[in-house]
Structures are given as structure tokens and as C-alpha cells.
Design a protein around this nucleic acid. Structure first.
Lengths: 191, 191
DNA sequence: GTCTATAAATCGATAGAC
DNA sequence: GTCTATCGATTTATAGAC
């Protein structure tokens, strides 16, 4: 059985509020209300509004990095590897579109120290994608002239989902992730 | 000779501030200060903070629609048409990355009425891209199974530029737009 | 059309009782 | 660890002089 602590209830409430209204437009009263608590109760479990954002953003960045790193290990063959990486990265942004929106859109609202920490995870995500492309080019299986730019473009497909995707909408996350994976292969495969 | 009115100075200041800190985190004092005016002067030229956002967002959406509509008219041949549309759409988001960020990220901060008006322009942009794909499929030149999803993906390349692109950075807008155009053609061309 | 001054509301965060 | 009450700062927007 899973016990949900008051601290976690507040984090879930913050995810809802930040994703819906943005960090700056969200009040601590709103977060407390969504968690069924008084405004003062927030500060028993979290230091500040920004520390709530930091917790959500750090967990989200780590989850996204984990997803793409695991995907990179599933295949040695470069085309299948890229396909899986793009599929899993896009699927994560669809399934976790609220956290994804906070990760991608509220980066600037973090303190400089927290932004630096999270920024390192972002660069690690980009490096993982670049390494997969470079490996495929080296094997002669992929045709990619601009590796950093193409890596960005492949990630952009998933990232931009958080702008409009709603779970329970007309399109499933799996459907969109599969489309992105197909498009990704066409973008990079040599022929 | 071009005369810049006080009203336009305030709009330019709002673009700077909204793009840098987001709409909710921007104060009317900040906008006034950037325009070299007192806080009260803002309300002589604009009704509210939201009406400043609406002005910027509407102009930005109209400019982006105009860019992609004009690009669609430059070629009859489907591949060249898609290439030009993606190039121009991405280039616009790079060159106007501050307005682009406001257009793409502050949609939710508009009033429901203004959001509906701007939303119609968004759907028109998507329709223009979808029509170009459908036409190419009909001519047998393009191979696109999921027209709406692919249209979204092609636009995502440009949209996601506003998340990180800075004019004067290590990569030029033309360089990125050309990359996106190349990738777009590979995504949709039949072979 | 610009300013100073301020109204009225709301914010993040804290004090202190229980 | 929860609450009510509130502090002190900040916000959008307005009033009224010039």
C-alpha cells in the first residue's frame, strides 16, 4: 500500500497549478487549497514557492533523462536506437505533459543555482541524442550533417507536445510518439 | 522618416519584458520603466496589462500566419513549397524569437475572448500546412500518412526555437531554418 | 500627455494558539 | 502538524495637479 504524505500532496497540487496557470501566476494559497490545506501549512513541508518548483523541475528533468538514457541502451543498431529514443522521449512528454510543461517552460523561474543544476541535466539529454547520431554516422548507417542541430530537432518534436497535448484528447500519446519515431528515422537514415 | 509613438514605445518595452520574464512576472512598472515613462503613463496609451499582451500576441500571430501563407504561394511544386514554408516559418521564429515566445507561451494569459480570436489564427496556420501536405499527397509527390500530426511536427521545429534561440548566438537563424527545411523534406517526400 | 501620490487588492511568508 | 490571523511588501490601476 502506498501512503501519500502531506509533502507529496502539496507537490501534486503544485504540478496541477503550475502547469495550468504558470509558476508566476500561481499563488501559494491556490496550491494549499488544491491540497486541502491552509495557506500556512505549505511552509511546514516546503521552504518556499520556488523550492516547490525546484522539486518538480528536478524530478521531471531526471525522469526525462532517465527515459532517454534507458532507450539508448535498448539497441546497438543506430536506426532502431534513434527510433526508440524519439518514441520514448515523445511518449514521456505526452503522458507527463503537465510536468513536462513545467520542465520546459518554467526553467527561467528557478533561482540561478537551481537553474544551473537543472541545466546540466538538459545538456546531458542533448548529449545522449548527439552521441546516438554520431555513432550512427560513424557506422555509415545515418546521414546527418549537423549533429547538434538535428539532435535538437528530434527532441523538439516531443518537447513541443507539452504546448497543446491533453491526456484524454483525440490523439493518444502512443500514436503521436509512433509518428515522431517514424519521422525521426526518415530525417536521419542514410540511403 | 519613422516616428515612434509613445504607444509603440510601450509595446516594444512590453515585448522585451514579457519575453524575458513572462507575462505574469512582469510588472506594469517594469514596462513603464523600459519605455522611459512613469507607471501612470502606461494607462494613457493602453487599457490594461492584458491589452498590451493582446496587442503583441495578435500582431505576432498575424505576422506568423502571413509568413506561412506567403511562403505557400511561392511554389506550385509540393516539395519546394513545403521546403519554403518550413524555412520561412522557422526563420520567423528565430528572427522574432521574443515575440515568438510571447505568441507561443503566453496564449493562456489572454482573456477567453482574446484567446478565441488568436486561436482562430493558430488553426489557420495549421490548416495552411495541412493543405500543402494534402496537395502533395494528391499529386503523388509526398508520402504522408498522418497529415494533421505531420503538419504539427513540421511547425514544432520552428515553434521550439523560441525556447532557447538567442539572436547573436553561435548559430544563425538562416542556418537553423535551412536545417529544418532539409529535415522537413526528408520527412515527407515520397521515394 | 506627463507627472506624483495613493487607493484597493493581493501576494509570499510568518506568528502563535491548539 | 494544523489552524486563524496578520505582517509587510508589492501589485494593477486611478486621482488629480500641471
Amino acid at each position: 500500500m502506498t501512503t501519500i504524505t502531506a509533502r507529496e500532496r502539496l507537490i501534486n497540487a503544485a504540478v496541477e497549478a503550475f502547469a495550468e496557470k504558470g509558476f508566476a501566476a500561481t499563488t501559494t494559497r491556490d496550491i494549499a487549497s488544491r491540497a486541502g490545506m491552509s495557506p500556512a501549512a505549505v511552509y511546514v513541508h516546503h521552504d518556499s514557492k520556488e523550492s516547490l518548483l525546484y522539486t518538480v523541475s528536478l524530478q521531471g528533468h531526471r525522469a526525462a533523462l532517465d527515459v532517454i538514457n534507458r532507450a539508448a541502451l535498448t539497441h546497438d543498431e543506430p536506426v532502431a536506437r534513434i527510433r526508440t529514443m524519439v518514441y520514448e522521449f515523445s511518449l514521456w512528454h505526452a503522458v507527463h505533459s503537465r510536468v513536462g510543461r513545467i520542465v520546459q517552460w518554467e526553467y527561467h523561474a528557478l533561482t540561478p543555482e537551481h537553474r544551473a543544476e537543472v541545466g546540466a541535466i538538459r545538456r546531458s539529454i542533448e548529449r545522449t541524442m548527439q552521441d546516438a547520431l554520431t555513432d550512427g554516422v560513424g557506422q555509415g548507417v545515418l546521414d546527418v550533417t549537423d549533429v547538434p542541430g538535428t539532435a535538437f530537432s528530434l527532441l523538439s518534436l516531443g518537447v513541443d507536445l507539452v504546448r497543446w497535448f491533453e491526456p484524454g484528447g483525440s490523439r493518444s500519446g502512443d500514436e503521436l510518439a509512433s509518428l515522431h519515431a517514424d519521422l525521426a528515422v526518415r530525417m536521419v537514415v542514410a540511403r
